[in-house]
Design a protein around this nucleic acid. Structure first.
Ligand code: SF4
Ligand code: SF4
Lengths: 142, 142
DNA sequence: TAAATTAGCACCGGTTTGGTGCTCTTTCAA
DNA sequence: TTGAAAGAGCACCAAACCGGTGCTAATTTA
């Protein structure tokens, strides 16, 4: 209910870390050593982000992941969309709901969904990294 | 993930119906006959709404439920809060999360959560009933 | 070749969710 | 005072979802 899954939070942490680390490719091992999240799980998450084109992947020694876009251009909406699927607030807004014909709140709910989505689309990874009003974030210990 | 549960949607439909029906008390039977949602389940939901003080309940013949407040004063935020619990978007925002100390996105996420909550708090039951810009809602066939 | 790394996929245990059954209590009206 | 119409309470169930892991490829570099 209206709560991010762990997957998404781990993914966001990794993306935020990558945003600060920048530059070269960083392996899952390196990331998890800094973030202390379950390694195998984060690997799965980053794979998804890679398939969605949000990060770039390179295999083999020296390989790893790298942001494909500018953190200021990557919206929270897109990230959540990849990690949790497209349905926000109500099914009928994107896909289709079986009780859609009989549903009396559909219209109103659609409006709410749009507003919520707008909020998510308004935040960028950069803002998530830096926190509200440029609060100092701990520098990566790489 | 970011999607309302069925419970909440059923609850909203019932509340919306009650808002339009208004006046006297309406039994679960009467409501479900108009809305076509699982009877026993809606009973459970309305019980919760009653305990939370959003609706008024009277037992016995002629009894049922009735809105306790003006639909224009009842926010979507409060309803969702009752039906799905208080955690919006992230645990650390209200309760506490075990990885809160090590979490790097906490601050940014908190800001997002506030914005999302504000949207929910901005919509009232009345707006859900009437839809965007006063779209005509089908009148209850009572 | 050997090692480092991502990709793919199946699996598992625990929780949540949608939904139902059954009994008890309250209230009204005949 | 009795019976029926309601809600209240609570236990229960099956299916879906979620966090997390194991194992085996495929790819790349040295
Ligand atoms: S049609 Fe109604 S019940 Fe179905 S997803 Fe939309 S709002 Fe929810
Ligand atoms: S501390 Fe981090 S991981 Fe925990 S709920 Fe808050 S944002 Fe999510």
């Amino acid at each position: 209910m209206m709560r991010l899954t762990r997957r998404t939070e781990y993914g966001l942490m990794a993306l935020a870390w990558l945003a600060r680390a920048g530059g070269r490719f960083h392996s899952v091992r390196e990331i998890t050593e800094n973030l202390d999240v379950p390694r195998r799980l984060l690997a799965e998450i980053l794979k998804d982000l890679s398939q969605a084109g949000l990060v770039e992947a390179v295999r083999g020694p020296g390989g790893g992941y790298r942001l494909r876009e500018d953190p200021g251009r990557l919206t929270l909406g897109r990230i959540v969309n990849v990690l949790e699927g497209p349905t926000i607030f109500a099914e009928c807004y994107q896909g289709d709901c079986d009780l859609s014909p009989r549903c009396t709140i559909k219209r109103g709910i659609g409006e709410v969904a749009r507003r919520l989505e707008a909020v998510l689309e308004d935040f960028t990874l950069e803002e998530v990294v830096h926190g509200p009003a440029g609060a100092p974030a701990p520098s990566p210990s790489s």
